[in-house]
C-alpha cells in the first residue's frame, strides 16, 4: 500500500509567556513524530488532553507550521508548496471539528456552507451547485429542503452531519476528524459513527480520527497511534493494540475505560507538564515497571508493524486484554436487532 500522508520527525513548540510578555519556556506539543497513513486507511490518534494529538492533526494539514520535520501528501512535500499551490491542494484534505456549533458560520445557510468549498475548488460547474448540495444532504441523512435553513435551526447531531457534508463537498482524499463525535449524546453519536463508517467505505476515504474515546476508536480504526506528552508511544493494528497492548501507558489507558468492573485506578497522579517533560522515557514517572534505564535513556519507537517505545516491551508480563462486564447476552442482541433494522410500526 502506498502512503497518502507521511509525517517525518515533526516538531512543534508553543512558546509560553507570562503576563508581562516574558518568555517562560515552551510547550513541546509535538516532539518528534513520524507516521504514515496508507491510502484508504482509517488511522486513529488517541491520547489524553495535552498529548499533542490535535496539534499533530493540524500540522498534518499544514494549518499550522511545524518547527521541524516534513509533511508529505501523495509524495509531495507540503512545506515546499507556494501559498497558491497549497490552497489548491486543500481540496484533497479536509478537517471535521468537534464542535458543530462553532464550526458552521451562523450567517450562512446550509446551502451556502456546503456550496462554498465546491465553488472555491471549482469541483461543480456553475448552476449545478444546488443539485449537488441536495445530493450531499441526502447522503449525510438530511433532506434536500434543509438547504435553505440556518445552522441554528438544527440539533447538534444534524449540524455535525452538515459539517461532514461541507468537509466532503470538495471531494477530498484525506479527512481528519478531530473528536468528530465527542460532543454528541450517545444515541446521536451512534448515528454519526455509522454515517462516517458508510462514507469512509463508499467513498474510499483515507481517514485520520483524533479521539480520546477508545471504544469509538476500536469501532472505526484499522490502526492506532497512542500518544503521550508529544510522542507516539505505541503504534499498530487496532486488534493488536487493544488485545495485546505493549506499552505500559496503553495498558493503563485501556484499563481505565469504564465498564470493566470497579477496580483500583490503573494510574496515579497527573500527566507531567509538557513544558518540562521527564528525562528518559516520558512515562517513567508514572510507570509501575520503570527501571534505572527508563529515567536516563529516551526509548525510540521501533519500525515494526506493532511497535512500542518502551525499553521493557519485550520483558513485560503479557497484557490482559480489556474485558467488559457482559450485559444482556442473546436476549439483548435480539432486541437491539429491532433498532438496527429500523423502526417497525
Amino acid at each position: 500500500m502506498s502512503a497518502l500522508l507521511e509525517l517525518r520527525d515533526l516538531r512543534k513548540l508553543f512558546p509560553v509567556r507570562d503576563a508581562l510578555g516574558r518568555s517562560r519556556g515552551a510547550v513541546r506539543a509535538v516532539d518528534g513524530v513520524s507516521l504514515s497513513v496508507a491510502q484508504g486507511e482509517v488511522l486513529a490518534i488517541v491520547g489524553e488532553s495535552g498529548c499533542g494529538k490535535s496539534t499533530l492533526g493540524r500540522l498534518a494539514l499544514r494549518l499550522i507550521e511545524p518547527d521541524a520535520g516534513e509533511v508529505r501528501f501523495g509524495g509531495e512535500d507540503l512545506r515546499a508548496l507556494s501559498p497558491a499551490a497549497l490552497r489548491a491542494r486543500r481540496r484533497d484534505m479536509q478537517l471535521i471539528f468537534q464542535d458543530p456549533f462553532a464550526s458552521l458560520d451562523p450567517r450562512m445557510t446550509v446551502e451556502a456552507a456546503i456550496a462554498e468549498p465546491m465553488r472555491l475548488h471549482g469541483v461543480v460547474p456553475r448552476g449545478q451547485e444546488s443539485a449537488k448540495v441536495a445530493e450531499w444532504l441526502e447522503r449525510v441523512g438530511l433532506r434536500a429542503d434543509h438547504a435553505r435553513r440556518w445552522p441554528h435551526e438544527f440539533s447538534g447531531g444534524q449540524r455535525q452531519r452538515i459539517a461532514i457534508a461541507r468537509a466532503l463537498a470538495s471531494g477530498p482524499k484525506l479527512v481528519i476528524g478531530d473528536e468528530p463525535v465527542s460532543a454528541l449524546d450517545v444515541s446521536i453519536q451512534a448515528q454519526v459513527v455509522n454515517l462516517l463508517q458508510d462514507l469512509i467505505r463508499d467513498l474510499g476515504l483515507t481517514f485520520v480520527l483524533i479521539s480520546h474515546d477508545l471504544a469509538v476508536v476500536r469501532h472505526i480504526a484499522d490502526r492506532v497511534a497512542v500518544m503521550y506528552l508529544g510522542r507516539i508511544v505505541e503504534l499498530g493494528e487496532t486488534e493488536q493494540v487493544f488485545n495485546r497492548p505493549k506499552h505500559p501507558y496503553t495498558r493503563a489507558l485501556l484499563a481505565a475505560v469504564p465498564g470493566q468492573g470497579a477496580k483500583a485506578p490503573p494510574l496515579a497522579g497527573d500527566v507531567p507538564s509538557p513544558m518540562a517533560p521527564p528525562s528518559g522515557c516520558r512515562f517513567h514517572t508514572r510507570c509501575a515497571h520503570a527501571v534505572a534505564k527508563c529515567r536516563e535513556v529516551d526509548p525510540m519507537l521501533p519500525s515494526e508493524a506493532h511497535a512500542a517505545a518502551c525499553h521493557l516491551a519485550a520483558e513485560l508480563p503479557p497484557a490482559i486484554a480489556p474485558h467488559e462486564t457482559e450485559t444482556g447476552g442473546e436476549r439483548l442482541r435480539r432486541l437491539q436487532a429491532f433498532f438496527t433494522q429500523g423502526t417497525a410500526a
Partner: peptide
C-alpha cells in the same frame, strides 16, 4: 446499550 460502541 446498543448505541455505545464497545471496547471488546
Amino acid at each position: 446499550l446498543g448505541a455505545a460502541p464497545r471496547l471488546v
